Deep mutational scan, measured.
Amino acid sequence: GFTKEQQRLGIPKDPRQWTETHVRDWVMWAVNEFSLKGVDFQKFCMNGAALCALGKDCFLELAPDFVGDILWEHLEILQKE
């Protein structure tokens, strides 16, 4: 899971503390893990605080249908851990 990747890359547990690099690493991991298609990494050029502050509607505009939902749900789980 993502926990191993977080440990390997030194990504903080709390997504709100992520840098732009951490956000990119997470999106890249999720794309590979969940076989997601059509993700534009440029749209995720922000730090974790900005990403978490978007709200669901704005977040879902960053990625194609269903893909955004998967990313959003995973981000929500990470914020609760």
Rank of each mutant, 00 (worst) to 15 (best):
G1W: 06
G1N: 15
G1E: 12
G1T: 06
G1Y: 09
F2V: 06
F2L: 05
F2G: 06
F2Q: 04
F2K: 07
T3E: 14
T3M: 13
T3D: 15
T3P: 08
T3F: 12
T3N: 09
K4N: 14
K4S: 11
K4I: 15
K4F: 15
K4T: 10
K4R: 10
K4G: 11
E5L: 09
E5T: 09
E5V: 11
E5K: 08
Q6N: 08
Q6G: 09
Q6I: 15
Q6T: 09
Q6E: 08
Q6L: 13
Q7W: 09
Q7M: 15
Q7G: 11
Q7V: 13
Q7L: 13
R8H: 10
R8F: 10
R8D: 10
R8M: 08
L9Q: 08
L9Y: 08
G10M: 08
G10N: 08
G10P: 06
I11H: 05
I11W: 10
I11T: 07
I11E: 02
I11G: 03
P12F: 03
P12G: 04
P12N: 04
P12Q: 01
P12C: 06
P12V: 02
P12R: 02
K13Q: 11
K13T: 11
K13L: 11
K13R: 10
D14K: 03
D14P: 02
D14N: 09
P15T: 04
P15A: 05
P15I: 11
P15R: 00
R16E: 13
R16G: 09
R16K: 12
Q17P: 00
Q17M: 14
Q17S: 11
Q17F: 09
Q17L: 10
Q17R: 11
W18H: 00
W18V: 01
T19N: 08
T19G: 08
E20Y: 07
E20S: 12
E20P: 11
E20G: 06
T21Q: 14
T21A: 14
T21D: 15
T21F: 09
T21R: 15
T21I: 08
T21P: 07
T21G: 13
T21M: 11
H22D: 11
H22M: 08
H22T: 04
V23W: 01
V23Y: 00
V23D: 01
V23I: 04
V23Q: 01
R24M: 14
R24G: 09
R24W: 06
R24L: 11
R24H: 15
R24N: 11
R24P: 00
R24I: 09
D25Q: 14
D25N: 12
D25S: 13
W26K: 02
W26I: 00
V27M: 12
V27F: 07
V27E: 00
V27G: 02
V27D: 01
M28D: 12
M28R: 14
M28N: 15
M28A: 13
M28W: 09
W29A: 04
W29L: 04
W29V: 02
W29P: 00
A30K: 05
A30I: 07
A30P: 02
A30L: 07
A30R: 03
A30Y: 07
A30G: 07
V31Q: 09
V31R: 06
V31S: 10
V31E: 07
V31Y: 04
V31H: 04
N32Y: 05
N32W: 05
N32I: 07
N32F: 05
N32A: 14
N32S: 13
E33Y: 10
E33H: 13
E33Q: 10
E33N: 10
E33A: 10
F34E: 04
F34W: 12
F34I: 01
F34A: 04
F34G: 04
F34N: 06
F34V: 02
F34Q: 05
S35Q: 15
S35M: 08
S35Y: 06
S35H: 10
L36D: 02
L36M: 05
K37D: 13
K37E: 15
K37L: 08
K37H: 11
K37N: 12
K37T: 13
G38P: 08
G38Y: 06
G38W: 04
G38E: 09
V39R: 02
V39H: 04
V39C: 07
V39S: 03
V39P: 03
D40W: 02
D40Q: 12
D40H: 07
D40T: 05
F41A: 13
F41W: 10
F41V: 15
F41L: 15
F41R: 10
F41G: 09
F41H: 15
Q42E: 14
Q42D: 12
Q42L: 05
Q42R: 13
Q42T: 11
K43E: 06
K43F: 04
K43N: 11
K43L: 05
F44T: 02
F44G: 00
F44R: 00
C45T: 13
C45Q: 14
C45W: 12
C45P: 05
C45R: 13
C45Y: 12
M46R: 04
M46Y: 07
M46H: 04
M46L: 10
M46E: 00
M46P: 01
N47Q: 06
N47W: 00
N47K: 07
N47M: 01
G48H: 00
G48K: 01
G48V: 02
G48M: 00
G48R: 01
A49E: 14
A49F: 05
A49M: 11
A49Q: 13
A49C: 05
A49V: 08
A50Y: 05
A50W: 03
A50E: 14
A50R: 11
A50L: 07
L51M: 09
L51I: 08
L51E: 00
L51P: 02
L51C: 02
C52I: 12
A53S: 14
A53T: 12
A53W: 03
A53C: 08
A53E: 15
A53R: 12
A53D: 15
A53N: 14
L54W: 03
L54K: 09
L54G: 07
L54D: 02
L54P: 02
L54F: 05
L54R: 07
G55S: 15
G55Q: 10
G55T: 15
G55M: 04
G55R: 12
G55H: 11
G55V: 04
K56F: 01
K56E: 05
K56H: 12
D57N: 13
D57W: 04
D57A: 11
D57C: 09
C58V: 14
C58S: 15
C58Q: 15
F59W: 05
F59G: 00
F59Q: 01
F59M: 07
F59C: 03
L60I: 09
L60W: 04
L60Y: 11
L60V: 11
E61L: 06
E61I: 02
E61Q: 10
E61C: 07
E61Y: 01
E61P: 07
L62T: 04
L62C: 06
L62E: 03
L62D: 00
L62K: 07
L62F: 06
A63P: 00
A63N: 05
A63H: 10
P64Q: 06
P64L: 01
P64I: 01
P64T: 07
P64M: 00
D65S: 14
D65C: 11
D65R: 13
D65W: 05
D65K: 13
F66C: 12
F66A: 14
F66I: 14
F66V: 15
F66Q: 15
F66W: 09
V67P: 12
V67M: 15
V67R: 08
V67F: 06
V67S: 14
V67K: 05
G68M: 01
G68Q: 02
G68P: 02
G68D: 02
G68L: 03
G68S: 09
G68T: 07
G68H: 03
G68K: 03
D69S: 11
D69E: 12
D69R: 10
D69L: 11
I70A: 09
I70M: 09
I70Q: 12
I70V: 12
L71M: 08
L71G: 01
W72V: 01
W72Y: 15
W72L: 05
E73Y: 05
E73S: 14
E73K: 14
H74K: 06
H74F: 05
H74N: 12
H74C: 08
L75E: 00
L75C: 00
L75W: 10
L75I: 07
L75Y: 03
E76P: 07
E76I: 06
E76K: 11
E76G: 12
E76A: 12
E76S: 13
E76Y: 15
I77C: 13
I77Q: 12
I77S: 15
L78Y: 04
L78W: 06
E81D: 14
